[in-house]
């Protein structure tokens, strides 16, 4: 346990018994068990990183693409949104504009794509132009990603 602490393998440490039981029950060989433990640790770290980066990005709420009601917005091309979710446009430094009347899901899509970007290790900042410039994030609130 102390060694797991020292290596900061906290997800494995916290659930060691459960994980070892599971490995034994599935009759994993040692190599499989090691991969199983490490995968668990990585999943927890990714989850933490996404939640932390989400706070830094200052999203107004949590929304995912999965929760978007595409049936309610037939003018939207779902494939086009899925293409944007690959974040290739971010790698290229491109721009995306969502235009439309209030209540058509523009902010939902923006937040969901922002979270997708964080998953792919891009740094993200969310600001609203409904407040004046001076209320936008101050210096020191942005932290670079790629910390892992």
């Amino acid at each position: 346990m102390a060694q797991l602490d020292r290596l900061k393998l906290t997800a494995i440490r916290d659930q060691l018994d459960t994980l070892l039981d599971e490995a034994a029950r599935s009759q994993m060989i040692l190599r499989e068990a090691l991969a199983f433990l490490v995968t668990h640790e990585i999943a927890r770290r990714d989850e933490r990183r996404i939640s932390m980066e989400g706070k830094i990005a200052r999203f107004p709420f949590v929304r995912e693409l999965d929760g978007f009601d595409f049936d309610a917005q037939p003018s939207l091309d779902q494939r086009q949104i899925r293409e944007l979710a690959t974040c290739r446009w971010i790698a290229h430094g491109d721009t995306v504009l969502f235009l439309g009347p209030p209540g058509t899901g523009k902010t939902h899509l923006a937040v969901a794509l922002g979270r997708e970007a964080i998953r792919q290790n891009h740094s993200v900042q969310f600001v609203t132009a409904a407040t004046p410039w001076r209320c936008w994030p101050r210096p020191m609130t942005t932290v670079h990603s790629k910390s892992n």
């Binding site: 990005a57 107004p60 971010i90 523009k106 902010t107 923006a110 937040v111 922002g114 970007a117 891009h122 740094s123 993200v124 900042q125 969310f126 600001v127 609203t128 132009a129 409904a130 407040t131 004046p132 410039w133 936008w136 994030p137 101050r138 210096p139 020191m140 609130t141 942005t142 670079h144 990603s145």
Partner: peptide, 19 residues
């Protein structure tokens, strides 16, 4: 502030046009 907003790889600007 401008420098700060220039840094992130993706900057989301919501609700442009309200003000």
């Amino acid at each position: 502030q401008l420098t700060t907003l220039s840094r992130p790889k993706l900057l989301i600007i919501d609700e442009l046009g309200y003000l």
